[in-house]
């Protein structure tokens, strides 16, 4: 029981982190049709900027400044890079962000080195808030959760209750009509891209000190975020939330269970008893195959239902 609660709590935390990343990505995709390969790289930039800024002025100013800087960089990338490539089609845009992710990773290595930097949890937050079944939760993790939840609420409010949100929603579905109504759609695109990157940067600031700030962090998280937005449905904020929590909980629960196919077969009364190289196929535990599960879900979802759980149109 306590394993379940433990992994549930960690899963929600991980899921909310995924949501902070995927919300920006799904908005960008839904609106511009661009799958931003470099999204997790902006997440990484957020963590590194926070590390650098907090060295000078402390964690709290960094929490604000770093995402803003990342957002500005994102907007510049959209304005001078992506918009130029746009006329060559979606494949070229995809390639551009792929190359950008590569360049950002190398640039980060150039500036901060190849080994992890020591970006720590702020001292004021580094205490145990409560313990559950003997497992202790630091105040910082709860703070992370709070920020993520308030981000979802703010984003939801922005998109559904404000004029800007209305234009964004319109541009999501009918960019040409919104443009002919007199709105500056390229500007909206740039702002949304910048906002999405800033959100990824914020996630980086919050998670960099828990997951570790190193040049490989973008590649580790990047593909998982794609899985989330595809399963949730492209352009759907609610879908991103549900899928993030689902993937987060699935990932953390799967690694904590040692159930194998063989064990299951034993329970229902089938004895598997042969000795060959294929024996390992039935002996694999859920924990062992858990790295494959998200990608299996991704491909299945794209093959069976390309619009995802909550999406309104196909990829």
């Amino acid at each position: 029981m306590d394993i379940l609660i433990f992994s549930l709590f960690n899963g929600i935390l991980y899921g909310m982190l995924l949501f902070m990343l995927s919300s920006g990505l799904t908005l960008i995709f839904g609106m511009m049709g661009v799958l931003n390969f470099a999204h997790a790289s902006f997440f990484m930039l957020g963590a590194y900027f926070a590390y650098q800024i907090s060295k000078f002025v402390g964690f709290w100013p960094a929490l604000i400044i770093a995402p803003v800087v990342v957002g500005v960089i994102g907007a510049i990338v959209e304005r001078y890079g992506l918009r130029r490539v746009h006329k060559f089609g979606h494949v070229a845009e995809l390639l551009f962000t792929f190359g950008l992710a590569y360049v950002i990773e190398e640039a980060v290595q150039m500036i901060w080195g190849k080994v992890p930097v020591s970006y720590h949890i702020p001292e004021v937050m580094n205490f145990t808030l409560f313990s559950l079944y003997g497992l202790e939760y630091s105040a910082y993790r709860v703070f992370m959760l709070l920020v993520a939840v308030s981000m979802f609420v703010a984003l939801f409010f922005l998109l559904t209750r404000t004029r800007v949100g209305l234009i964004i929603q319109g541009a999501l579905t009918y960019p040409n009509i919104v443009a002919s109504l007199g709105h500056n759609v390229p500007l909206v695109f740039m702002m949304v891209f910048g906002l999405g990157c800033a959100l990824a940067g914020l996630a980086g600031v919050l998670a960099g000190n828990i997951l570790g700030t190193e040049p490989g962090m973008a590649i580790q998280l990047g593909p998982i975020v794609f899985v989330v937005i595809v399963i949730g449905g492209l352009g759907s904020l609610n879908g991103a939330l549900v899928a993030s929590l689902f993937i987060g909980i699935m990932q953390t629960t799967a690694v904590s269970y040692d159930v194998s196919m063989n064990g299951f077969l034993n329970v229902i009364g089938v004895q598997v008893d042969f000795d060959s190289a294929w024996r390992m196929l039935v002996d694999l535990t859920v924990a062992q195959i858990s790295p494959i599960l998200p990608y299996l879900l991704l491909t299945l979802m794209l093959i069976v239902r390309p619009r995802g759980l909550f999406g309104v149109r196909d990829v």
Partner: peptide
């Protein structure tokens, strides 16, 4: 291969990671 473009690219990414 049912679709080209981004869908195809993502499926290929999924298989690659798998």
């Amino acid at each position: 291969t049912r679709r080209a473009g981004t869908t195809f690219a993502m499926i290929s990414l999924g298989f690659g990671e798998m």
